[in-house]
Computed example of a mutant assay.
Amino acid sequence: AYASSLDQIGPFSRTVEDSAILLQAIAGYDPKDSTSLNVSIPDYTKNLRPNLRPKGQIRIGLIQETFGEGLDSSVLQAFTKAVEKLQELGAEIQVVSCPRFRYGLPTYYVIAPSEASANLARYDGVKYGFRTPQSENLLNMYAKTRAEGFGSEVKRRIMIGTYALSAGYYDAYYLKAQKVRTLIKEDFDKAFAQVDILACPTSPTTAFKVGEKTDDPLSMYLSDLMTIPVNLAGLPALSLPCGFDQQGLPIGMQLIGNVLKEGLLFEVAHVYEQSNDWYKRQPRLEKVSF
């Protein structure tokens, strides 16, 4: 486990239909998993309708806080066109506010590293994963294995988490982050009292080059700005293609549903997907030498 309260598997597919079929296979109650809900699983493929329900029956809320500084103009343009298409297809569009949405990033980067630090404390390289080939004794093997086996970003997160959980800082960081997490969830609950689905760009920018932001971790973390609050709130979300930028890099639209409303996400996503051919296109890839 990386961060126990955040880790979640999900389908990764070429089409919405493939995603629905795959989720159908992996969803369900597991008595050996304490995080598994004992609820009946619907047939998600039955939500793959050719058209949306009659006009006005599906309300989509645009999260106001996601349209600010740092959002690339090409991403905004593609997302705006996607929203216009959803409106043409019969969805009712309105703007909603999730005031604490922007606190998702700092909240996540306290909770996730803290839980990662606790989880990875048991990793010693004795049985699983990397083990240093040269060591003087048991303690030396532990130290060298963790030093050689973890990359710089993993080490950074472990150190952040260890600090946040240390005596004197637990209440100031980890406990406070958990309280903010609850406030973020409350904002989503209020938004879902007004709309059926929330929408925003999947990421504020398109993909950056490999290694480009290694020396600027904060800039790299900002790529998760739109998705992290959803994860913190424990909500289902779906990202699907909605365009390309001038460099030929793909742009995604994120649809967010309320708890156990995956079927509605598939319905809206499938109708949108079938109204264009974005999912059939591929980005232009340049050859890179390492």
Results as ranks from 00 to 15, higher is better:
4 S>V: 05
4 S>H: 09
5 S>D: 01
10 G>V: 02
18 D>V: 02
19 S>I: 06
19 S>F: 06
20 A>R: 02
21 I>C: 07
23 L>I: 04
23 L>D: 02
24 Q>V: 05
25 A>C: 14
25 A>P: 01
25 A>H: 13
26 I>H: 05
28 G>V: 06
32 K>C: 00
38 N>C: 13
40 S>T: 14
41 I>M: 13
42 P>G: 12
46 K>N: 14
51 N>C: 04
55 K>Q: 06
66 T>A: 13
70 G>V: 09
73 S>I: 04
78 A>Q: 13
80 T>L: 12
80 T>D: 13
89 L>R: 05
93 I>T: 05
98 C>Q: 06
100 R>C: 01
104 G>W: 02
106 P>S: 09
108 Y>M: 10
113 P>I: 07
115 E>C: 06
118 A>V: 12
122 R>A: 03
127 K>H: 09
128 Y>T: 02
128 Y>P: 00
131 R>D: 04
135 S>H: 15
141 M>K: 15
144 K>T: 15
157 R>G: 04
164 A>Y: 11
166 S>I: 11
168 G>P: 10
178 Q>W: 01
183 L>C: 00
184 I>Y: 07
187 D>C: 03
191 A>F: 08
192 F>Y: 06
193 A>F: 05
200 C>F: 09
203 S>R: 12
205 T>I: 08
206 T>P: 10
209 K>L: 13
220 M>N: 10
222 L>T: 08
224 D>V: 14
226 M>T: 10
229 P>R: 06
232 L>N: 10
232 L>A: 09
237 A>V: 07
238 L>N: 02
242 C>I: 01
248 G>V: 11
253 M>C: 07
264 L>H: 10
264 L>D: 13
266 F>M: 05
266 F>G: 03
271 V>N: 00
275 S>W: 03
280 K>I: 02
285 L>E: 05
288 V>M: 10
288 V>A: 08
289 S>T: 14
290 F>I: 15
